[in-house]
Each structure stands twice: as C-alpha cells, then as structure tokens.
Amino acid sequence: MSLTQDFEQILETALPTDPSFQRIEQAVIDRCICDTRRYALEGSKEAFLFSAMRLLALPDNGHTRLIPNDAISVLPLRFVSIGTALHLIGTAPETIAPRGELIAVNGTPLSQIEAASKRFLAGTRQRKRVIGSILLAWPYALARLGFSSKDDTTEYRVQDENGQITDFKVENGYTVPASTLYPRNEHGKADPAWKPERFVEIKDWQGLGLSILLPSFFDPGESALPKAISGAAEQVSACSNKALLIDIRGNTGGDFLQTMPLIDAISENASRQVVVLVDKFTFSAAIVFVAILKHRLGRRLKLIGEEMGDALMFFAEGGLLDLPTSGAVVRYSSAFHDWGNGTSDETTPAEIARQIVPAGALDLDWEWTAKPTAEDAHGAFYQRVLKSLSN
C-alpha cells in the first residue's frame, strides 16, 4: 500500500461528503490538494500528514480534521493548554524535564510559533489551542514551520510557578509514539491515558445543593450512558428545591440526545439556580447540552470557566476514516448545526433538527481558568460556587 491510497480516501469520502468545504473557494482547495498529492506520491509520510492537516483545516470546522496522533512520534513531552498559556505538565517514563509554562522553542517565542501553526489546525481559537499542543513536541512540524534548531536537538524554555526560567534540550532522535502522550480526544488531564470511570457522579453538599460531574457523553456500548442519565434525572427531580452545579469541563462530546432526560429534569423547577463549569476541552455535544439548558433556563443558568472548544454554529456527524498506510485518522462532517440562531438545513438529521433551539451567545458569567488542584478535586471549589448561588 502507498500514501496515495490514503490520499484517495480523503478525496473520495471526506471532501465530497463534508458540506463545510462548500464555503471554501475551489482554487484554494485545489492548491492544498496539489501539495498533499505531491507528498503522497513521494512517499513522504510526515510531509503528507502535515499537508493533509492543512487541507482538512480549510473550513475551520473543528469537527473536520486530520488526527495524526496514531501515526507519528514526538519528543517525550506532554504540553497542555491552560488558560491562554501552554504548559509542560508531563513526560514519558524515564524522561526528566522541568514543569512549567512554555515560553520559547529553539529561541523563538511561543506566540510566533502558534501564529504560524494556525492554518494547519482546525476549528475555533480554543480548539486550536487544544489540538495544537502536539505540534510543539513534533520535530517535523517545528521544522516545517521554520522553527527547528541548527543541530539535532530541540531546546525549550519554561517558567515555573515561582517565575524561575529553565532552558533544556531534548535529542530529536529520542521520540515516543504520540498517542502515548496525546490522546485522540484531548481532555487536558495530566495523565494522557485518563478515562472517566463513570458517566455521572452526583454529590449532595448538604444545604448548598447538588454537584453533577458529567465527564463524557460518548458511550460505545450505547447502554451505560442512558442508564446513568436516567438515574441522575431521577435524583435531580427528587431534589427539585436544590441548586445545581454541573461540571462538564473536559467533556469532549458524544450523543447529546441521550442526555435529554437530565435536561428535562433540570428544567422542571422554574426557580432552580444552576451553574455549569466549562473549559476549552468542552466540545460538541457537551456544548449542545449547555445551549439547550441556557435556552430553557435563561438567566437562572450561570456559566463559569473559559470559552468552550467549539462555536455554536458548526458541522458534525459524519464519520472517521482510518488511513491504512500512514496510520492517521480523518474526522469528517456531514451535517450542519446552528445552536446560536436555532437553524438547520437539509443536512441536519431530523432527530437533531427537532431539538435545535436559539441559545444566543453563551457568554461567561465568571471567567475562571486554573490548573486543576487538590482543593478543586476535593470539592472546595464546588462548595464555594454553590454558596455564591445563594448570595
């Protein structure tokens, strides 16, 4: 097999199926196709993948993109976007490196590298921050962007929480499979292998209210999520006089239709106060969950956190293409969503079109971005937020 077979899959399935490409000038698409085809014919795997990233990023629809994680190797460093900064929060085993905010790579300020990489990354500003972290550990990407070093190392400059700046180098030949440090669905946790243990976690904070943690709406078995949502809905209905804190930080999406019973239960009480915690790792169906709640609750819903990873107008559904030669994955879309204005079109599945509402803007009531702490994990932050609802 050759890279041309991977390339043909993109041309034959992703581009003609995905309506988001209809908004892009054909000449622009053709130029990117030409570059990607050239690298495929040459058999240059990394060049092909990087060019395909550019091609699939053209519509700026984050649901449509090439995901290189399973196909490439990276330096043994895990970078994650926290707030507006990029942090080194972990390494591969047996790798020692100082933790902290990334300031520069090979002497180039991070802001300059991020500006150059934007056109290879799909989606909103926040989604680019999430999926762009891998580029800082990918030697080929740094070289293609024009920021490689003059020798066979990559030098990083980081600043710790005390303001101390440290420079360190990593040999470019010392790489690990990217998927071991960068999960396909990036959640922002320190442990790249993190997976939710359950779909719903509810806790009653005595007189303050209930907290509901919803880490994911993706259920391959299609039975555990509906069961968990049903149980949560019953508990919320039974505590109709209590305020709610709903945490969907790190929820990368799934099937929002399965969550409708919980949305209904939350919406039953006309006076209930609800706060939802969100971040840049909140995507797709999780944002739809928030949009429907906002439409129903209005001012009774407060949003705390940071701008989410997707806009309210996007293209979704579609499918995945496993590219057999390169090992990469292509995510492509097939349906239009507009949860800001509440509109759909002929590509929107009927069951989704029936639920679409005009949520307007999902503006934050309290902007809060911080690295997860032990205090947060033990609920002190939850209690502080719930107390604020009664003030």
Rank of each mutant, 00 (worst) to 15 (best):
2 S>Q: 14
8 E>I: 07
9 Q>L: 15
11 L>R: 13
12 E>F: 05
13 T>H: 14
15 L>A: 12
23 R>H: 10
27 A>N: 14
29 I>T: 08
31 R>M: 08
36 T>V: 13
39 Y>I: 00
39 Y>A: 07
41 L>F: 02
41 L>P: 01
42 E>G: 09
42 E>C: 04
43 G>E: 02
48 F>H: 07
51 S>C: 08
57 A>W: 12
59 P>H: 10
61 N>R: 05
63 H>N: 10
69 N>E: 14
69 N>Y: 09
71 A>T: 04
72 I>T: 02
73 S>Y: 09
73 S>P: 00
77 L>Q: 06
78 R>L: 15
79 F>I: 04
85 A>D: 14
88 L>G: 06
94 E>L: 13
95 T>L: 03
96 I>G: 00
100 G>P: 08
103 I>N: 00
107 G>E: 07
108 T>Q: 03
111 S>L: 09
119 R>L: 06
120 F>Y: 15
124 T>W: 05
126 Q>K: 08
127 R>I: 09
131 I>H: 12
139 P>W: 12
140 Y>G: 06
143 A>Q: 14
149 S>V: 01
153 T>M: 07
156 Y>S: 01
157 R>C: 13
157 R>I: 02
160 D>W: 02
161 E>A: 11
165 I>Q: 15
172 N>H: 02
173 G>M: 02
174 Y>L: 14
177 P>G: 05
179 S>L: 11
180 T>C: 01
181 L>D: 03
184 R>I: 11
191 D>C: 04
193 A>V: 01
196 P>R: 09
196 P>Q: 08
197 E>G: 13
201 E>I: 04
207 G>D: 13
211 S>I: 00
213 L>V: 09
214 L>V: 15
215 P>F: 12
220 P>W: 02
222 E>A: 12
223 S>K: 12
224 A>I: 01
225 L>K: 08
229 I>H: 07
229 I>V: 15
231 G>L: 09
234 E>N: 11
238 A>D: 12
239 C>Q: 14
240 S>F: 10
241 N>M: 09
243 A>C: 11
244 L>V: 12
256 F>T: 08
259 T>Y: 13
261 P>F: 10
263 I>K: 14
264 D>K: 13
266 I>E: 15
267 S>R: 10
270 A>Q: 12
273 Q>F: 00
277 L>V: 04
279 D>G: 03
279 D>F: 04
284 S>C: 11
286 A>L: 11
286 A>K: 13
287 I>A: 15
295 H>A: 10
300 R>C: 08
301 L>D: 07
301 L>R: 03
304 I>V: 15
314 F>N: 06
315 F>L: 00
318 G>T: 06
323 L>H: 06
328 A>S: 10
330 V>Q: 05
330 V>T: 03
331 R>I: 00
336 F>V: 02
339 W>V: 01
341 N>W: 04
343 T>F: 12
344 S>V: 14
345 D>I: 03
346 E>Q: 12
351 E>R: 06
355 Q>C: 08
357 V>N: 11
375 E>I: 01
376 D>I: 07
379 G>F: 02
380 A>V: 01
382 Y>F: 08
